[in-house]
Amino acid sequence: MKNVLKRLDPFLKVESVLEESDRMEFVVFVSSSSALCPTCGKRSFNRHSSYMRKISDLPIEERKVFIHVKSYKWFCKNSKCERQVFTERLPWIAPYRRRTQRLENDLREVAFSTNAMQAEKVCRTLGMPVSHDSLLRLIYKTPLPKKESPFRWY
């Protein structure tokens, strides 16, 4: 089961796994010794603090999956940068989100394929519990592809 998380991020270290009949919970930490400031892009080696994030992921064997990630905050050493402290960015979680990118992609696919009320029922059946309101917010946040009209005159 620990190898499942290696596909998300090779730097994840699994501390513990809790398996129950309806869910699985992983406690992991990121084994990084530095991070890039999202504002100025300068690498920092000075940790400020750490905190835990609870992230939902794709279900495994129809069980809900939660990942408790220990992330770090870092000092930005660039004196010209407006941020003094920043949080570590993980490529598989968007900032301020509580779902992995791959879970959001699957939820988006289900939400766009049917209406929000039925998508909620389908997601619950698949082990991805989400409300229809959350699905609607996900739809509204999704940028529409830009297509040129066939009726456009040049």
Results as ranks from 00 to 15, higher is better:
16 S>I: 07
19 E>I: 12
20 E>T: 08
20 E>C: 08
22 D>G: 10
22 D>R: 08
22 D>L: 15
24 M>H: 05
25 E>A: 12
26 F>T: 01
27 V>Y: 11
29 F>D: 03
31 S>L: 09
32 S>K: 09
34 S>P: 00
35 A>Q: 01
36 L>A: 04
36 L>G: 01
37 C>S: 04
38 P>E: 00
40 C>N: 02
41 G>F: 09
41 G>Y: 08
42 K>I: 13
43 R>Q: 14
43 R>N: 13
44 S>V: 06
44 S>G: 07
48 H>G: 07
48 H>T: 05
49 S>K: 08
49 S>A: 12
50 S>T: 11
50 S>L: 09
50 S>F: 14
52 M>N: 13
55 I>E: 04
56 S>K: 12
57 D>C: 05
59 P>C: 06
59 P>I: 02
59 P>H: 04
60 I>Y: 06
61 E>R: 14
62 E>K: 15
63 R>N: 02
64 K>G: 01
65 V>G: 03
67 I>H: 02
68 H>A: 09
68 H>C: 09
68 H>I: 10
68 H>R: 15
70 K>I: 10
70 K>D: 05
71 S>H: 03
73 K>P: 07
73 K>G: 13
74 W>D: 03
76 C>E: 05
78 N>K: 07
78 N>F: 06
79 S>K: 11
79 S>F: 10
81 C>N: 03
83 R>Y: 10
84 Q>Y: 05
87 T>G: 14
88 E>L: 10
88 E>D: 05
89 R>Q: 15
90 L>P: 01
90 L>K: 01
92 W>R: 00
93 I>Y: 06
94 A>E: 14
98 R>M: 04
101 Q>F: 00
101 Q>C: 00
104 E>R: 09
104 E>W: 00
105 N>F: 00
106 D>G: 09
107 L>T: 01
107 L>R: 04
107 L>Q: 02
108 R>M: 08
111 A>L: 02
111 A>R: 00
112 F>A: 02
113 S>G: 08
113 S>W: 00
114 T>M: 04
114 T>D: 03
116 A>F: 11
116 A>P: 00
116 A>I: 08
117 M>L: 10
117 M>E: 13
119 A>G: 13
119 A>I: 02
123 C>N: 01
124 R>T: 06
125 T>Y: 09
127 G>L: 01
129 P>F: 03
132 H>M: 13
132 H>I: 05
132 H>Q: 12
133 D>G: 14
134 S>Q: 13
134 S>R: 07
134 S>C: 13
135 L>A: 11
137 R>K: 15
139 I>M: 14
139 I>D: 03
141 K>N: 15
141 K>C: 15
141 K>I: 08
141 K>W: 09
142 T>H: 14
143 P>F: 07
143 P>Q: 10
143 P>D: 10
144 L>G: 00
145 P>Y: 05
145 P>F: 07
145 P>C: 04
145 P>Q: 03
146 K>W: 11
147 K>F: 14
147 K>N: 12
148 E>R: 12
148 E>A: 15
148 E>W: 11
149 S>H: 07
149 S>G: 07
